[in-house]
Computed example of a mutant assay.
Amino acid sequence: MVRLYLFAEGQTEQTLADISIKPHLAQYEVFMHNPILIAHARKKGKVHRGGGRKYVPMKEDIMRFLKQEKAPDVFFTTMIDLYAIHPDFPGLAESESIGQDPLQRVEFLEQRFAEDIGDHRFIPYIQLHEYEAYLFSDPTCFEYLDAGRTKEIEALQDIASQYPTPELINDGQQTAPSKRIIAQFPDYGKAKSVFGPHLAEQIGLQVIRSKCSHFDKWLSRLESLNGEGII
């Protein structure tokens, strides 16, 4: 068996990891600690967590855990957004030259992230483009919020049908996945961290994986860690 630390950007990711990913990985003898909100600042010796994207506090947070947990059977991963990522993120300027392929860009940034941390036990994951993209894997999940909103669900289904994968839904600040959802279901925006994970739970990891290849690749990597933890 191996242990895993997951650093989440916000409470939505933290809750999804806790209620869905954590029990799933336990089946593969990969035991996740309670997901941690990643640091966004450190002031007067106190670490402030969640809601921030500045790279230096994130890196320092991860490095502290790496130093505390030196065993080869302990791994570390992240769940942060590409959407609105901070300009100080390693490789961000270089990634602009990759062009219009978000998947290649995010994989490049993950590679640079891993190189900057410099520990083979660290497995970075950056969401394409943000958490809410997963919910477009099956928009009927929004019946959980209001079963009578057929037209709104159909509108989200229409958006999803325009993309080869929900992970590519992002056209700008006002048309990112979360913005599109809130346009149809305003209540979602009032309690994203509560509704988001439970909507994903309604869909199920297998459906999300079948529609979101980048997410599936990351989860498959985590499932395989038990074989890597014995060195």
Rank of each mutant, 00 (worst) to 15 (best):
A93S: 04
G99H: 05
M32L: 06
G50E: 02
K44T: 10
I19G: 02
F76I: 04
G50K: 10
A17K: 00
V74P: 01
A93I: 11
A26T: 03
L16G: 03
T77M: 04
R105Q: 11
Y55T: 02
R105W: 08
Q100C: 13
Y83S: 03
A84L: 11
A39F: 05
I38T: 04
P102D: 04
I80N: 01
V47W: 07
L16E: 05
Q14N: 08
G51W: 05
R105N: 06
N34I: 15
F65T: 11
Y55V: 02
A17F: 01
P87Q: 14
G99M: 08
A41Y: 07
T15R: 12
T77E: 10
G91E: 03
R42M: 07
M32I: 03
R64Q: 11
I85G: 09
K22T: 08
F89S: 01
L16M: 10
Q11N: 10
D61P: 04
Q68F: 11
L37R: 09
Q100V: 14
G45E: 03
Q14A: 03
Y55M: 03
S20F: 01
A26Q: 07
P72R: 10
S97Q: 06
G52E: 01
L16V: 15
H40K: 15
T15H: 08
V30P: 00
H24P: 02
E29Y: 09
G51T: 12
P57D: 05
F31P: 13
P102E: 07
P102W: 02
I85F: 15
I85E: 02
M79I: 11
K67D: 14
D88M: 04
H24N: 07
V56Y: 14
D18F: 05
D61Y: 09
S95D: 01
A93V: 12
I36A: 14
N34W: 14
K70L: 13
L82H: 12
R64S: 11
V56D: 07
Q68V: 13
Y28V: 08
K54V: 06
G91C: 08
H48P: 02
I38H: 00
Y55N: 01
G52R: 09
E60A: 15
M58W: 06
R64L: 15
D61G: 11
R53D: 06
L82S: 03
Y28I: 07
A26Y: 04
A17P: 02
K70G: 04
M58A: 06
P87D: 11
S97A: 06
D101K: 12
